[in-house]
Design a protein around this nucleic acid. Structure first.
Length: 202
DNA sequence: TATCAAGTCCTAAGTATCCG
DNA sequence: CGGATACTTAGGACTTGATA
């Protein structure tokens, strides 16, 4: 990814931290992370995280749902399947978010996504045609709320070229701890995992 | 009703990236 | 390397909602 996009992601990640750990106003935070226009900050934050800054703070970083990109027509016959596994012994055993994104950074609206209770097999159906990055994120159970202490484990694969009439896979992607130069995970994901698990249990 | 914080939309300008 | 294109950001105008 370009330096500019990486820097933008780091600034929004810092804004997320400040929103949850301080009582600074959105305007103050937008200035602290380097934006001189709160309008730009707000629009950039919402398009990347999925929630506006104030909503993110109000919900404590939890999103009730992840809107998928409905601009792209889904193709019923196309599926992407495979397995998410732990690459490192210390990698997360928690719930796993798996999504297809147009870029190497998990932000904005995924083309489609699913939630796994733990690393294991996955399947994404009705995948739109296009070139996608398969990205996965896992957080250690019980540490979802901890800001900064529990960096998520991540996995990436791609780009994957999806064309009509093809079933993509099996793909194996390994979870490993985030590195310093990995792009930060900007989507507000955590409540989606909890919601998906409670729905599966009921 | 006035004020303020926050959000949305738009345009312009600067910057990055792509490609021949 | 340079032009074309896409992206990013700034900033203004306006709207919305909360509160005094």
């Amino acid at each position: 990814m370009s330096p500019g996009r990486f820097l933008s992601a780091v600034r929004l990640q810092e804004a997320k931290r400040l929103l949850l750990s301080t009582s600074l106003s959105v305007t103050e935070i937008s200035h602290k992370v380097g934006y001189s226009s709160v309008g730009t900050f707000s629009s950039r934050f919402k398009s990347s995280v999925g929630l506006s800054p104030s909503a993110y703070r109000e919900l404590r970083g939890f999103a009730a749902s992840i809107p998928v990109d409905i601009q792209r027509p889904a193709t019923r016959s196309i599926s992407v399947h495979g397995e998410v596994f732990q690459q490192d012994a210390g990698a997360g055993e928690g719930t796993v978010f798996v999504g297809l994104f147009p870029d190497t950074i998990p932000q904005g609206r995924p083309a489609c996504c699913t939630v796994l209770e733990r690393p294991g097999p996955f399947r994404l159906d009705n995948v739109p045609e296009g070139d996608w990055y398969l990205l996965a994120q896992s957080v250690v159970p019980g540490e979802e709320h901890v800001i900064g202490n529990a960096p998520p484990t991540v996995a990436a694969h791609g780009p994957i070229t999806v064309r009509h009439g093809h079933i993509i896979g099996p793909l194996r992607i390994g979870l490993r701890p985030m590195r310093t130069l990995d792009p930060p995970v900007l989507l507000a994901l955590l409540d989606v995992r909890r919601g998906a698990l409670s729905a599966a249990a009921s």
